[in-house]
Amino acid sequence: MLRFVGAGASHVGLVRDHNEDAAYSSPYLALVADGVGGAAAGEVASATAAWVVAATARSHPDDDPAVVLGEAIRTVVLDLHRGVAADPDRTGMATTLTAVATDGHRVVLAHIGDSRAYLMRGGQLLRVSHDHTFVQALVDAGDISAEAVRTHPMRNVVMRSLHAGSGTEAEVQPDIAVLDAQPGDRLLLCSDGLTDMVEDAALAPLLGTADPAAAADALVRAALDGGGRDNVTVLVLDVVDDPDAVRLSADGELHGAIRDPRNVVDPGEHQHP
């Protein structure tokens, strides 16, 4: 039975005064959410997304993870709408979401925004998520090079996110796909506070540290050494096959904004993750 074994770390960074990232990890679900920069109540949006997805997955342990993630994301959007209705100061709040879930047989990725997921196998690192950003659209169209993204003045403009606005359905539609994940692979989920500070080529040596907790700490330290201009959150997860495992609804680890239930829209509406 496939499951995740790993560790995470989150840091406010060297410039921001509070953490708008939220992360959750358990043997069968892991996610990173990042409140969209410049929007109101980013910590509420990210914590609510993390809480709702974790609670939904925990309450449906035997269901198809693609279906569970899709349903959870629809619930997040509804909760964000309710959060704005309850407090108009939250108008415009939005968050990215990058999540992986397994039913013990396959691993499913759900992704929206510019947080990222990577898979490392045999020392080779592959990005398995696709940024929903203005600059990535320019790269896809062949208008700029991938190398130009890091210095482009609009590099942080997110085109798709989970939000409570009145945008089109496409703007809140995540990518959901089955990953080619195998026992022995290592997954990295991270906010752009890491990837804006550390180039992809520098990630693999740090991620290759044997102990997941040490790897997570090394990645955060690299982001801080690179300038720490944003909150930085990472989850380092080893994919393992445990044929004797009995799937249980286990508690997960909370990182960042989700650690404070006051950041969650109506946490009592959902099972504690």
Rank of each mutant, 00 (worst) to 15 (best):
F4Y: 00
S10T: 06
L14A: 05
L14D: 08
N19K: 06
N19P: 11
N19S: 09
V32W: 06
A39G: 01
A45L: 06
S46K: 08
A50P: 02
R58V: 02
A66C: 06
D79F: 13
G83L: 04
G83D: 06
M93Q: 13
T95E: 12
T95N: 03
T96E: 06
R106N: 04
R106P: 04
G113N: 03
G113Q: 07
D114T: 12
A117Q: 02
Y118L: 07
L119P: 01
M120R: 08
G123D: 06
Q124E: 14
Q124F: 14
V128P: 13
V128Y: 10
F134Y: 15
A137S: 14
A141Y: 02
R160W: 02
R160I: 03
R160P: 00
L162R: 08
H163Q: 04
H163N: 15
G165I: 05
E169L: 14
E171Q: 11
E171D: 05
Q173S: 13
I176P: 15
D180R: 14
Q182K: 14
P183C: 11
G184K: 07
R186M: 10
L187E: 10
L188F: 04
L188R: 05
A204C: 04
D211Q: 13
A214W: 01
A215N: 03
V220W: 07
A222E: 01
D225T: 10
G228F: 00
N231I: 00
T233H: 09
V239N: 13
V240G: 05
V240T: 13
D242T: 10
S249R: 07
A250Q: 11
G252K: 01
E253L: 13
R262S: 11
